[in-house]
Design a protein around this nucleic acid. Structure first.
Lengths: 112, 112
DNA sequence: AGAATAGGTGACCAGATGGTCACATGTCAA
DNA sequence: TTGACATGTGACCATCTGGTCACCTATTCT
């Protein structure tokens, strides 16, 4: 069944952790204290979340003196995609999303 | 922050629900009872999981008499991919995965 | 009509999860 | 070497989650 991805899905299930990935997607290599300052949560909470992201392989780290730098790793995300997106229908799915994005751009916040 | 995807990530966080998606990926349009028969869990548990998958848009359904048919919807999966995979590095990431797959094919279960 | 089949609801409970704190270790700079 | 800074650990608690059951509705078959 290939579910060693369990850590990845569990890690992605929390909005705070997804926000952390978003921050790293914008600017890679941030420290714990930098990330904490944007997140309305104590340092300990952020640390726990980063730990889970690291265990899942979604974030890789490098020590630099007393600092620990965090980097986003996109590989596990790509694996999720490949699990349920058939090569032959991939183009069709991407096209649907493009259409959705275009509709939302044309009619912003429309309430039917 | 675009986190109306919360239901999607929560739905994917459970191994039983991922297994259900796997089953539908193999054969689409199954009923609740068919899916239950493969899953070592009572009908009620499976029903709860399918409900969450449906709320998240990962599964779409169609009623046919007293049966309810379940179909896999790949669109939300593609959205996850697009959130953190940069268009410009996408090819690089896919290449890394291909390499990983090839290595695991050549050296099955090697313990370094 | 009556029985069998497919699906649905609400309550309930054990166990997992998110967040905080007191306290501890390692690192840099004056 | 003393103090400030960056990160780490273990315990603790309120809340969420996964799974089951008693009971109910709707559809099909004989």
């Amino acid at each position: 069944m290939s579910d060693d991805d369990d850590l990845v899905f569990k890690a992605l299930a929390d909005p705070t952790r997804r926000a952390l990935l978003d921050r790293l997607f914008v600017r890679d290599g941030q420290t714990l204290t930098e990330l904490e300052s944007e997140l309305a949560m104590t340092r300990f909470g952020v640390m726990k979340h980063l730990r889970l992201l690291e265990d899942a392989g979604l974030v890789v780290t490098r020590r630099q003196g007393r600092e620990k730098l965090h980097f986003l790793n996109p590989v596990p995300i790509r694996s999720i995609h490949d699990r349920w997106i058939d090569k032959y229908t991939e183009h069709h799915t991407a096209t649907l999303l493009d259409l959705k994005a275009e509709l939302e751009r044309d009619d912003p916040k429309e309430k039917p």
